[in-house]
Each structure stands twice: as structure tokens, then as C-alpha cells.
Nucleic acid binder design. Structure first.
Length: 270
DNA sequence: CCCGGAACCTGAAGGC
DNA sequence: TGCCTTCAGGTTCCGG
């Protein structure tokens, strides 16, 4: 499940291989991967454009194109972008291929077909609607407090709302709440100042550690070179069904909050 | 306007 | 053993 650390890892590993390269063609094995414009126009407009660089906003990858526009890619749950040569057999479940002028290619592999590509202009509305980047300097404790103050729902649900903070998904929300010793059902606007401070620190700590470990390969996530990340090995609660709390030994609990599995220690998190 | 749930998909895991 | 059901989750859409 690519969240901020996984998408950032993909961005940093893909960028050196494709920056400055030009797109010689696009293959669509499943047209549903293109959200806009029409599949045919998508191919026509991309062909011949060069990649000036790759950015990231939340869980979105932003390819800056020489024509001034953006290629926006979201990997959703099972997507991966793999680097290869045009002479090789593309990996299984490859839904789209971006061919580059040096004979290499980016294969968009996505077993579940949730991922999407889209051409957009700078200042795109979807990207603009995202909340602040949690790892940027401007994301202070008071910004977190102000963002959460508008929501009275469970903190777990609010943390994964991309319009509140960008980039946090199910796994890292569970990890951050555990590190901050906050129960996921606690009302978002009911946190104490001490709790807000712990949560702010925990969000950054958890995300930075996961980027350092090149992301978490709990499912289908793999890096552009095909390697896995190791962040999941450091998870304290996420996806650890039936295990014990690493701090107090209490069996971990799993709740369903807003339809999402949520792991917690019922003793440490109050 | 805000909140919550369904839909989109398919592989994996669980149940009988 | 094997088939059928359920689960997993990011985002968008829709109904209350």
C-alpha cells in the first residue's frame, strides 16, 4: 500500500533514471488506467514530451513535462512503477508502459487496476485540495492542532483524510497513534496539548523512519528496481494481528474504523 | 455542509 | 481437498 514513504522512495529512485529523458511512446494494456484525457489523446499528448523532473504531493507522483503540463500518477493500493529495458518482457499485470528515448521504459504494474494516470495543468484542483505535507517545515504542532480542530470524528479516520494532512494512510496512521499513545477512536478535536505534541512528533518520526527503510512491503509494493522496502519490519502494531504489544505485552486489538482495519494496544493507547 | 458508506478491483486468506 | 465467501484499502461518488 503505497503511502507517503513508499511514494517518496519511488520518486527518489525513479528521478535519476528518467529526468531529462523524452517520451517516445505510450502503451496502454488497459485503458482504464487513464483518468483524463481520453486514452488516445493521452498517448498523443505525451509522445515527444520530455521529463523535467519528478515531484511528490501526498501520495501523488508529479511528472513535470517540457510542454508545461503535469503527468499525475496515483498508485492506489497495488500499483508499482518499474524500470526496465524495452527489449525485456514487461512484468505481469503491466497495465501501461511509458517508453523513453534511451530504450528504457517505465512499466505501470497494478494487479488490482485501482491506479490512475492523468494529464493536468500546474495548480491542479485535486492536488491543491490536499492538506499540508507533514514533513515540510511549515507543519508545526499549531498547524496540526488547527487542522484537527475542525473535525470531531475519530482521530484515526481524520489522520488518513488527505484534505487534513497529505500522505498518511492506514498503516502509518496506526503506527503514529501507537507511538503517540493515543487511542484511534479519540475525537480528533479532543486531544490534549500534550497529546497533540506527541502525535506531531510521532507522525514525523514514523514517516522519516519508513523513508529511511525505503518503504513498507506488506503487500505488492516494490521499488522501481524491483527491490522491496523494509519499513514493515519495524512496525509496532500495523498488520500485527494476534501479536503482543512490544511495550507492555498486552495482545494487540483490531478495530474497524470507517471501514478500515485499525491495530492498537488497548493498554498503551488511551 | 458534513458525515458515513459503497463502489472500484483482484489476489489472498478464511470458512465450511 | 476445494469451492465459495470475505477481506484488504485510497479515492471518488452518492445518499442521508
Amino acid at each position: 500500500m503505497p503511502e507517503l514513504p513508499e511514494v517518496e522512495t519511488i520518486r527518489s529512485e525513479l528521478a535519476p533514471a528518467v529526468t531529462g529523458r523524452c517520451i517516445s511512446g505510450v502503451t496502454l494494456n488497459w485503458e482504464g488506467m487513464v483518468a483524463a484525457p481520453s486514452p488516445q489523446e493521452f498517448i498523443t499528448r505525451l509522445k515527444g514530451q520530455c521529463i523535467k523532473g519528478i515531484g511528490r504531493r501526498g501520495k501523488y507522483l508529479l511528472f513535470y513535462l517540457s510542454g508545461g503540463g503535469l503527468l499525475i500518477i496515483h498508485l492506489k493500493m497495488s500499483g508499482a512503477l518499474l524500470l526496465g529495458r524495452d527489449t525485456e518482457l514487461p512484468p505481469g499485470y503491466t497495465r501501461a508502459i511509458i517508453h523513453l528515448d534511451n530504450g528504457s521504459r517505465i512499466s505501470f504494474r497494478d494487479p488490482r487496476k485501482f491506479g490512475r494516470m492523468r494529464l493536468a495543468a500546474e495548480g491542479d484542483a485535486v492536488i491543491s485540495a490536499l492538506g499540508p505535507e507533514p514533513l515540510e517545515e511549515g507543519f508545526t504542532v499549531s498547524v496540526l492542532k488547527e487542522r484537527l480542530a475542525r473535525h470531531k470524528g475519530p482521530i484515526k479516520a481524520v489522520l488518513i483524510d488527505q484534505s487534513v494532512i497529505a500522505g498518511i494512510g492506514n498503516m502509518y496512521a496506526d503506527e503514529a497513534l501507537f507511538a503517540a499513545r493515543i487511542h484511534p477512536l479519540m475525537s480528533a478535536n479532543g486531544l490534549s496539548d500534550a497529546g497533540l505534541k506527541r502525535l506531531h512528533h510521532a507522525i514525523r518520526e514514523v514517516l522519516v523512519a519508513a523513508i529511511g527503510a525505503k518503504g513498507a512491503s506488506v503487500n505488492t509494493y516494490i521499488r522501481p528496481g524491483g527491490q522491496k522496502g523494509s519499513a514493515h519490519q519495524e512496525f509496532k502494531v500495523a498488520h500485527r494481528r494476534g501479536e503482543k504489544c512490544p511495550v507492555c505485552g498486552t495482545p494487540l486489538e483490531r478495530l474497524v474504523i470507517r471501514g478500515r482495519g485499525s491495530y492498537l494496544c488497548p493498554r498503551c493507547q488511551v
